[in-house]
């Protein structure tokens, strides 16, 4: 019999099962991006952001009631959950396109620990942004998805479209700055 030691995400999920919000935060930190990437086949037909949020919230709700076995089992469970949510959303839209092929044996890995070097470069590039694009992007980042863009724009005295154009400019500056530091876009798209 092979006994595997629990992974960091297994330990975080165990804490979430006991109702520990910090444990759930650790679980989300390691699981969000792999779950998002797993939804790539559905990109054209569902708003992946909405599915990821719904799936993560359901994991918090379900955690105390599910007992999972095996390494990274909670992440594999969550991958099946978000896939089913995406399929339901497609059904709701009654679209006629074929559904992507099934994938019952989900292969998914927890996110790797953040690259501190990349983080430092992003922070440095952010600090060099022109004022208005930086303000707009900072408003979006600081808000953490709690308010719509129109409210964030109003708080900065900008029209919604101006606010969005400023964030677009900010991202272009960031991408260019990152590339000047030798960080190609695929590094932060992966």
């Amino acid at each position: 019999m092979v006994v595997t030691s629990p992974s960091a995400i297994d330990l975080a999920f165990e804490r979430a099962r006991r109702g520990d919000p910090e444990g759930f935060a650790d679980w989300v930190r390691a699981g969000e991006l792999p779950l998002r990437r797993s939804l790539r086949p559905f990109t054209r037909r569902v708003d992946v952001e909405a599915i990821v949020q719904e799936g993560l919230l359901r994991m918090w709700d379900l955690a105390p009631r599910i007992d999972l076995q095996g390494r990274d089992a909670s992440l594999r469970y969550a991958a099946r959950l978000v896939r089913n949510l995406a399929l339901k959303e497609i059904e709701r839209g009654a679209r006629l396109d074929p559904i992507p092929p099934g994938d019952d044996d989900v292969v998914i890995q927890p996110d790797r620990p953040p690259d501190s070097g990349l983080r430092r470069i992003i922070m440095d590039c952010f600090s060099r942004l022109p004022r208005k694009p930086r303000e707009a992007l900072l408003a979006r980042v600081s808000d953490g998805g709690d308010n719509p863009d129109r409210d964030l724009a109003a708080s900065l005295g900008m029209r919604l479209n101006t606010f969005l154009q400023n964030i677009v400019r900010a991202r272009r500056h960031l991408a260019s700055c990152l590339e000047s530091h030798g960080v190609p876009p695929r590094e932060y798209l992966s």
Binding site: I122, G145, D146
Partner: peptide
């Protein structure tokens, strides 16, 4: 969206993306 989440994680003191923060706020 993936690129945006990387930037948010880099700028957030707790290393959380805006998605994670929205979900954790809702869960609380």
């Amino acid at each position: 969206q993936i690129a945006a989440r990387h930037v948010e994680r880099a700028l957030d003191p707790d290393g959380l993306s805006a998605t994670a923060r929205a979900v954790l706020l809702r869960a609380r």
